[in-house]
Design a protein around this nucleic acid. Structure first.
Length: 425
RNA sequence: GGAGAGGUGGCCGAGUGGUCGAAGGCGCAGCACUGGAAAUGCUGUAUAGGGGCAACUCUAUCGAGGGUUCGAAUCCCUCCCUCUCCGCCA
């Protein structure tokens, strides 16, 4: 959510910055509504002040011995009643205006940061770094081929259990998934991240707080009988963890690492990535999350990205870092670095982590603040996958595949998995 | 699911119609005392929005929303949540 004050004072700035994202909005009429709302509020509070004075006067008169039904008191009562009616009318107006403003503002994405590269779509993203030496031999298998051959997961039978785009990990596949989750959490914990395991059903206030609602309702699964949704990412429950809080300043930055399953409808992706672990309705993810001060957030963005990269590097997986252009960034983000892992079988880089700084956008929606001297300020929030577990497994399978059909795992994973090789059963 | 109790400031806790944004305590900050500290004393210490260069000031907020009243933390209604006991349950 954007600042209402900014809307009143400088709507052109908002329009200008949103235009960088390809969002064209004319805020003149919304600004007019916001100004009208403020006038309304001003008049209302003046009337209320008058009403309070009258109330106090009546009390004083009665305590001084004046008859409660006498003419003096009666006159004041009439005045009080008149004011009450006026206030009620203004309040109603004010509420309607406020609702309009909120509805409009909550549908607007975050302003991009100055550093984010301008652009319209994926093609305008900027690659800023490459790490590792990708395998590029001919004839490498894709991860789903390897997985099926080694019996790591069940695709067909999972449709029986749920529907398409669900997967069942089995045997070494299930074991590897668990090993990866533990490995990632340990790595992050060692760097000072605090581990959390939040609810993965969240209410709509939580989804609104992190920016998924109201615009992206069709992306999430909802429980029909309750005001509860399946989390699309741990970012949602972690943001909500501190909703409506004033965080003691000395605690900032607060850093969390959470493993959760994530659920997404993947609407509009029919026919894409239908095989294997790349695009599923349910997948596991270890998420990194920071709450920090505005001064800390730019450096924090570099750090959270580096912490995600550390997972790839420890797993010896070649990757590149992409600076997303303004047109390709998510709703709540001010700037985003995507990490793309090299998939030797597919012969392409594939997103495996998305590290975003949201500035005060989510904090304003969620009312998460801290004290700076006497004034209260909104915190900045950041999130980054560290990493998407299923895609990590896909990368490991394709990267570690050997001529004899087995898969060699990186040394760092062996203690977690219990072996450095996956072979056919 | 059944029965009961309760939701007040960062925390604990008083407050059943009139100057209560709210006693008292804890915590925190500043000052004093001290060689330094502890202890003690004094002072200050909510959030949101509006106005003002500022000192400051106005409004709202005692779980949420309605209602009664000139006036509500206090009375009435609805809802939400928490706790205790019983039942059920991993």
């Amino acid at each position: 959510m954007l600042d209402q004050r900014l809307l009143r004072e400088n709507p052109e700035l908002i329009s200008q910055q949103l235009a960088r994202r390809g969002v064209e909005v004319d805020l003149a009429s919304l600004q007019a509504i916001a100004l009208q709302e403020r006038d309304c509020e001003q008049r209302r509070s003046e009337l209320q002040a008058e009403g309070n004075r009258i109330g106090r006067q009546v009390g004083q008169l009665i305590q001084a011995g004046s008859a409660p039904g006498g003419p003096e008191v009666r006159a004041l009562r009439d005045q009080g009643n008149a004011i009450k009616h006026q206030v009620a009318g203004l309040e109603e107006q004010e509420k309607a205006l406020e609702q309009q403003i909120r509805a409009a503002l909550s549908a607007l994405p975050n302003l991009p940061s100055a550093e984010a590269p301008d652009g319209r779509c994926e093609a305008d993203n900027v690659e800023i770094k490459r790490w590792g030496s990708p395998r590029v031999e001919e004839g490498l298998e894709e991860h789903w081929q390897i997985g099926e051959r080694l019996g790591l997961f069940e695709t067909e039978r999972s449709v029986r259990i749920a529907q398409s785009r669900f997967i069942t990990l089995i045997g070494d596949g299930a074991r590897l998934e668990r090993a990866l989750i533990n490995f990632m959490l340990d790595l992050h914990s060692a760097k000072g991240y605090r581990e959390v395991m939040p609810p993965i059903l969240v209410n709509s206030a939580s989804l609104t707080g992190s920016g998924q609602l109201p615009k992206f309702a069709e992306e999430s699964f909802r429980c029909a009988d309750d005001d509860l949704w399946l989390t699309p990412t741990a970012e949602v429950p972690i943001t909500a963890l501190h909703r409506d809080e004033l965080i003691p300043t000395e605690q900032l930055p607060l850093r969390y690492a959470a493993y959760t399953p994530c659920f997404r409808r993947e609407a509009g992706s029919y026919g894409r990535d239908t095989r294997g672990l790349i695009r599923l309705h349910q997948f596991n993810k270890v998420e990194l999350y920071w709450f920090c001060t505005p001064e800390q957030s730019a450096a924090a963005h570099q750090q959270i990205t580096a912490d995600a990269e550390a997972v790839l590097e420890t797993l010896e997986l070649p990757y590149r870092r992409i600076d997303l252009c303004t047109g390709d960034m998510g709703f709540s983000a001010a700037r985003t670095f995507d990490l793309e892992v090299w998939l030797p079988g597919a012969g392409s880089y594939r997103e495996i982590s998305s590290c975003s700084v949201c500035n005060d956008f989510q904090a304003r929606r969620s009312a998460i603040r801290f004290k700076e001297g006497k004034s209260t300020q909104l915190v900045h929030t950041l999130n980054g996958s560290g990493l998407a577990v299923g895609r990590t497994m896909a990368a490991l399978l394709e990267t570690g595949q050997q001529a004899d059909g087995s898969v060699r795992l990186p040394a760092a994973l062996a203690p977690y998995f219990g072996s450095d090789t996956i072979s056919a059963v």
